[in-house]
Design a binder for these strands. Structure first.
Length: 269
DNA sequence: CTCGCCACCTGGGGGC
DNA sequence: TGCCCCCAGGTGGCGA
């Protein structure tokens, strides 16, 4: 799935086609996502989409009277298709806009579609989210402060959405490579200089991935319905045993917190 | 509060 | 071909 760049690319792909448009119908063929798709989904019919926003990996469709919250989980994608396109097995939710339908496909059903009439930032899923990595709020100083007192590995902390949002397994590995930091390093012991380098690396890799149209691995499909062929060439992710593109050393795969971590034992210390 | 771990799902790929 | 096992980009929630 979708880490921040893929969600942002989806947002940008979808927004021009739905902003200012009236939802003619909202359809849930399978309500069994991570949480049940609420019955209030159907009340979207007749409402206008005012904006498409993003908070972390959550997409927020600002509508008259509320926000539709969409999370793509690990295998979700949103596509714009001609209305009437027959749904596939894993196409669970549709928003119909006249000639087009915005369709959620999510084979693993780890995604979510929720509706809230309160301010979205107060929603339980969003209320405790951390800093946006591409915002000015993420500075070297901020990362330094966020890491103090934490013995957990820096890679694990990067993926903790209560501190920093949007960084998943791929971009955690890649940004640590760019910063030359061992993913196992205790977060609280990183120097100010290393925090500064890591912040630069995080912003760089996320921006680059957005520019590339999102790293397209198996499940990500661009919102226009074309399978993304763009794949950000990874430095370390998914390359165990292969030579480091920078120094030639054999890359390693380890497991941290039940997740695979890829790194270069020579470049990252 | 932090931590370590589990669970929720389906599908693809490799080995036999 | 078929079967079985392993792996996968997330993250809420549990108990310690």
């Amino acid at each position: 799935m979708p880490e921040l760049p893929e969600v942002e690319v989806t947002r940008r792909g979808v927004a021009p086609f739905v902003t200012g448009r009236v939802i003619r119908a909202a359809i849930a063929r399978n309500r069994r996502l991570r949480w049940p798709v609420p019955a209030s989904l159907e009340t979207l019919a007749g409402r206008t989409v005012r904006a498409v926003e993003r908070r972390g990996k959550y997409l927020l469709f600002a509508c008259d009277g509320g926000h539709l919250i969409v999370h793509l989980g690990m295998s979700g994608s949103l596509r714009l298709l001609p209305a009437g396109t027959p749904p596939g097995k894993h196409d669970h939710v549709d928003l119909v806009f006249g000639a087009r339908v915005l369709r959620l496909r999510d084979p693993r059903r780890f995604g979510a579609v929720l509706w809230t009439e309160a301010a979205p930032e107060t929603h339980p899923l969003l209320a405790h989210l951390g800093v946006e990595p591409l915002s000015r709020a993420l500075t070297a100083k901020r990362l330094y402060e966020l890491t103090r007192g934490h013995r957990t590995a820096i890679k694990h902390l990067l993926m903790d959405a209560r501190r920093i949002v949007g960084i998943g397994n791929i971009y955690a590995c890649e940004s640590l490579f760019l910063a030359g930091i061992d993913p196992r390093a205790p977060a609280g012991r990183l120097s100010r200089a290393r925090c500064a380098r890591l912040v630069v690396s995080i912003k760089q890799i996320l921006r680059k991935a957005i520019r590339a149209g999102g790293a397209s691995l198996r499940d990500f499909v661009r919102s226009d319905g074309e399978p993304g062929h763009f794949q950000l060439r990874s430095w370390v992710y998914g390359r165990p045993g292969l030579p480091c593109r920078r120094c030639g050393a054999a890359l390693r795969r380890i497991v941290q917190g039940q997740r695979a971590t890829f790194y270069c034992p020579r470049c990252q210390r």
